[in-house]
């Protein structure tokens, strides 16, 4: 711990981020700029999420870190080690045991409870960026609720593919007001954003933006009346735990084209297997 402040960031920076977080919670879905710090890891490794986690973490908190649902990827492991080292906090892989969960591109299958905080790593926070490169203009579009273009994008999907082809980073409207990019989670996870008892925080390191969905907030996925929002489904069940209702990853098992489908949420899968066993 020598040479570091608790959780790496200095107190002033953490205070500043917390203030920004308070604002984000007060205006659900609204992107708040914050004066981010350089972190000892490259962008793309979740520096936005790491700064948020560092700012909210208490010494007694139990931390879980997942990367696309898994606790054991290099990314997840190194972030977990980082916080063990700079904050000395206890870590876990059990969703139910965690106070703070930092995640890249998934929401755990196990329902979250009130009091938990989910911190998302966000590469591109601006849902309007695809159509409007100017930051000033997108801010204005949010301020004026000029969201027609979001449906232009979905319209194009249907015109081209016959259905809404967007499968991740599927845009949502938060509390009937701000259109928000939920980070590249699969659209399978979008329903979990709606009315979730946990607090959800989103941090983008490169663009220095954070935003939030407070507990029990209404979150709708954008769609058309005749092309309603739908989540992915699989013909298979999990090859390991048999689940027929979780998000599955396709895994190549050998070089002869063998493959199987398994839960992307490793903790969920293991827990189920433990229960079955």
């Amino acid at each position: 711990m020598d040479g570091y402040n608790f959780a790496y960031l200095d107190e002033q920076t953490k205070r500043m981020i917390r203030r920004a977080l308070l604002k984000a919670v007060a205006i659900p879905g609204y992107q708040v700029p914050f004066g981010g710090r350089e972190m000892p890891m490259p962008y793309g490794w979740g520096t936005g999420g790491v700064q948020l986690t560092a700012s909210i973490l208490g010494a007694d908190d139990i931390l879980k870190v997942i990367d696309q649902g898994a606790d054991d990827t290099t990314n997840a492991v190194s972030i977990r080690h980082f916080f063990q080292r700079v904050a000395g906090v206890e870590t876990t892989t059990a969703t139910t045991a965690a106070d703070v969960i930092q995640t890249r591109h998934r929401i755990p299958e196990t329902p979250l409870r009130s009091g938990q905080i989910l911190v998302f790593q966000v590469p591109i926070p601006e849902p309007l960026r695809f159509i409007e490169p100017s930051e000033q203009e997108t801010r204005l579009m949010h301020a004026l609720e000029e969201y027609g273009v979001m449906h232009v994008k979905l319209y194009e999907d249907i015109a081209r593919y016959g259905h809404i082809a967007t499968t991740y980073a599927y845009p949502v409207k938060v509390d009937g007001r701000y259109v928000m990019d939920p980070s590249p989670i699969p659209k399978f996870d979008n329903p979990k954003l709606d009315g979730n008892p946990a607090l959800m925080l989103f941090g983008a390191g490169r663009e220095k933006r954070l935003y939030a969905i407070p507990p029990y907030t209404r979150v709708e996925s954008l769609d058309f009346e005749d092309h309603p929002f739908e989540i992915q489904s699989w013909e298979h069940t999990c090859a390991l735990c048999g689940s027929d209702h979780s998000y599955l990853d396709e895994v190549i098992t050998d070089d002869k084209g063998g493959r199987m489908f398994v839960c992307s949420d490793t903790d969920y899968c293991q827990t189920r297997r433990g229960e079955v066993a």
Binding site: E146, G148, H151, V152, Y155, I158, A159, D223, F224, E225
Partner: peptide, 16 residues
């Protein structure tokens, strides 16, 4: 089609 539809979508039309 999307060009023509944009203003309608901005007005809240949600039927593809």
């Amino acid at each position: 089609g999307a060009n023509i539809g944009e203003r309608l979508m901005a007005q809240g039309q949600r039927h593809y």
